[in-house]
């Protein structure tokens, strides 16, 4: 520093105005760090991808078991998006979403978070954004990888061995949508229950047991109940044999997935806003 600078009176040096309100990117970064600091996140997402690839490969290798349809060619969607094989991944990401809320309440970190960001709804939106983007990326890898594996390993004639044909694109899109929907559902259940074991139970019951118990092949009530579950909406869009329901349109299935995501964010925001921490 020069003598001239030192001679400046201190009161003239004004500090830059302090930015007191966190930007959304800051909140996103904070939630990102929280999510990835848990070992269970990496393990669960890795397992979801590994399971999707393994099951796509083993399904297409045992291609004789798959429904071939009247005209013969095997539909690769049947191998890559066989209904029950995706249930563990749906539950896994829902548990990640649930722990994002429950874990923060259990450790007490939520108090610090909400002192730093008194606008609780912004925290919920940031949490939802991190969960949705991370699980959507996982689903993209799992779906594209599974389809490519099915293309490569399905014996015999296969129609539409291309990622760009409409059926493949629909299935990839539905899968990229359904895992975030499940993660957000888990987050909402976690906000409602705030107890780790109870939330784990509820996630498994709603996303796993529900579709197994209520199938869209019974009476009208059972069909309607089944159709509003994310699993069957996804099954409709992937048009795989099991897990698909022919009793709704593709547009309805998209609406159902969107409604679950939106309702989950709203429930989490309202519950977190109204309850003491």
């Amino acid at each position: 520093m020069t003598a001239a600078q030192l001679s400046q009176p201190l009161r003239l040096r004004r500090a830059a105005p302090m930015r007191t309100r966190a930007r959304f990117a800051d909140l996103y970064a904070a939630e990102w760090i929280k999510l990835w600091s848990l070992r269970s996140t990496t393990l669960t997402l890795g397992a979801a991808v590994a399971l999707a690839l393994y099951l796509a490969g083993s399904n297409s290798a045992g291609g004789t078991r798959l429904p071939t349809g009247p005209s013969g060619p095997i539909d690769p969607n049947h191998a890559a998006f066989d209904g029950p094989s995706w249930i563990p991944s749906m539950i896994g990401v829902a548990m990640i979403g649930a722990l994002a809320l429950v874990g923060e309440h259990a450790s007490g970190l939520i108090r610090t978070t909400l002192v730093a960001i008194p606008e609780r709804r912004r925290v919920v939106v940031a949490k939802a954004a991190v969960l949705a983007s991370v699980t959507a990326a996982t689903a993209l890898v799992a779906a594209v990888g599974g389809l490519l594996l099915a293309f490569a390993t399905t014996p015999g004639e296969l129609h539409g061995r291309s990622l760009t044909n409409p059926a493949s694109l629909d299935a990839i899109g539905a899968s990229v949508a359904v895992l975030p929907v499940c993660a957000l559902t888990g987050m909402a259940l976690g906000a409602l229950l705030r107890h780790a074991a109870a939330t784990g139970f509820a996630v498994c019951a709603v996303l796993g047991f529900g579709p197994l118990l209520i199938r869209p092949d019974g009476n009208r009530l059972a069909t309607d109940l089944a159709n509003v579950m994310p699993y069957y909406a996804w099954g409709r869009l992937t048009s795989a044999g099991r897990g698909s329901s022919g009793t709704m349109t593709a547009g309805e299935a998209c609406l159902i997935l969107a409604a679950w995501a939106l309702a989950s964010i709203v429930v989490t925001a309202v519950v977190l806003d109204r309850r003491d921490v």
Binding site: S40, M95, A196, G200, F201, C204, F209
Partner: peptide, 12 residues
Amino acid sequence: RHPAGAVSTAWG
């Protein structure tokens, strides 16, 4: 030993 993990594993 973790309630959420153990409950999900039991379901699984």
